[in-house]
């Protein structure tokens, strides 16, 4: 069941990302075009070629989740998207993009290691992905990411029928950011049931906020954030797997695992 959940999450996430990439281009395209000085046509061709192979890798991983190359190919693609976003400096939070995208690039690895019965490693990857994503988004929130502020204004006006003051919204977002950082950091130390469920619920709510804000036309924004919900749920289902706290980043041989 967990494998199906991870596969489903990966397929949904990649549907969103691939739609976004083919329709509007990616940061890899921007990097090739503006930094490497490739022609627009060539950059787009490379972008589309990657999209094609990522689609193939996703199909492969959906049916044969033990194929390492497919998992690492998707991982590499998502990681490169984050890295090029950092290099291009064009969007708010570029400094932490590499961590903000962690749930997305950790998902295929998590699925792969779970499929080959390396469950503790899969869990560690999931924890890293979720913690990094939460902490990075928390930092962005504390830096008052204008997009997040817009979501809050919109939510208050449309759904609560309250016109909030700027101070109220900014303080609120700052507080949310602080909570995100604390929760993300706490996950490294503890897999408390309530903590993990809170993270999953918040991941889903924030992903859904893209639909409530932009409308159904931007469904892909919701789709590509599905790992923010699926990975915490994976952690929830595997919270019984024990390893010493703070050792999630160490070599697996150093870790006392007990599945």
């Amino acid at each position: 069941m967990q494998k199906i959940m991870l596969k489903l999450a990966l397929v949904i996430c990649l549907m969103g990302q691939l739609f976004l990439s083919t329709k509007f281009g990616t940061s890899i395209n921007g990097f090739q075009f503006l930094i490497l000085d490739f022609s627009d046509q060539f950059s787009t061709s490379i972008d589309m070629t990657f999209c094609f192979f990522v689609t193939l890798a996703t199909i492969t991983l959906t049916f044969y989740s033990q194929i390492k190359f497919a998992a690492f190919f998707i991982f590499g693609w998502f990681l490169t998207l984050a890295l090029t976003k950092t290099i291009l400096h064009g969007s708010f939070g570029w400094e932490v993009a590499i961590f903000a995208y962690a749930a997305r690039y950790c998902l295929p690895l998590c699925l792969y290691y779970f499929s080959i019965e390396k469950r503790e490693l899969a869990l560690k990857i999931a924890i890293f992905g979720v913690s990094s994503t939460f902490i990075a988004h928390g930092i962005e929130a504390m830096m008052l990411n204008p997009i997040f502020l817009d979501y809050m204004y919109d939510f208050s006006e449309v759904y609560l029928n309250i016109v909030p003051t700027q101070k109220y919204v900014e303080t609120g977002l700052f507080f949310i950011g602080m909570v995100d950082i604390l929760v993300g950091a706490a996950l490294i130390f503890s897999r408390n049931k309530n903590l993990v469920l809170y993270i999953a619920a918040w991941g889903l709510i924030t992903a859904l906020s893209r639909i409530t804000y932009h409308g159904y036309a931007q469904w892909y924004e919701f789709f590509l954030r599905i790992p923010h919900f699926a990975l915490p749920m994976f952690i929830y289902f595997n919270k019984g797997i024990k390893f010493q706290p703070l050792q999630i980043f160490k070599n697996k041989d150093q870790v006392q695992c007990q599945s």
Binding site: P146, L149, D150, Y153, E157
Partner: peptide
């Protein structure tokens, strides 16, 4: 467009 577009 690099700031809060809605709200204030």
């Amino acid at each position: 467009t690099n700031w809060v577009v809605g709200g204030p």
